[in-house]
């Protein structure tokens, strides 16, 4: 194993399927022995609000929620692990969740609005860039 293999993901989208992908890729990278951080900004930050993790719309074919409902049925049928549990796994395996300070300021989001217990740190773009510079894998979701 190459020590210090890092993966950094920016979760910019708040869409249900995109956040799901981010969590699956994040836990996958951790499972492969990488160090992983996910930086939640803009719409992604909304998903870190209490009880909001799986509340985003489907990125395509949402059809006012009908598309999402159908997608959720398919996910359940394939026995895909629920998002909240994946986030738990992510934290258990040592992944870092970073919340964007600036997004909080712009959108008027306070720390109390967020799930503080899952957030590793609050930071700005410089921290993301520092993580990204040291990473072998950087993804914008």
């Amino acid at each position: 194993m190459a020590e210090g293999d890092k993966a950094t993901l920016i979760v910019h989208s708040g869409d249900f399927d995109k956040v799901y992908s981010a969590l699956i890729i994040g836990t996958g990278a951790l499972s492969m022995g990488m160090e992983v951080s996910m930086y939640f900004t803009f719409w992604g930050l909304e998903r870190l609000k209490k009880n909001e993790l799986d509340k985003g719309p489907l990125s395509r074919m949402n059809f006012l929620g009908l598309g999402k409902w159908m997608m959720k049925k398919k996910l359940k049928k394939s026995n895909v692990r629920e998002m909240d549990k994946l986030l738990e796994d992510f934290n258990e395996l040592g992944g870092k969740i970073l919340a964007c300070d600036m997004t909080m300021e712009i959108m008027g989001v306070k720390k109390e609005d967020l799930r503080e217990e899952v957030i590793t740190d609050y930071c700005a773009v410089g921290t993301y860039i520092k993580e990204a510079k040291e990473s072998d894998v950087t993804l914008f979701i």
Binding site: S31, R81, L93
Partner: peptide, 18 residues
Amino acid sequence: LGETCPVPLVETRKAVRK
């Protein structure tokens, strides 16, 4: 058994860590 991607990989990693 019965679990799908990424769970088998994730659970294996958890076991390795412990």
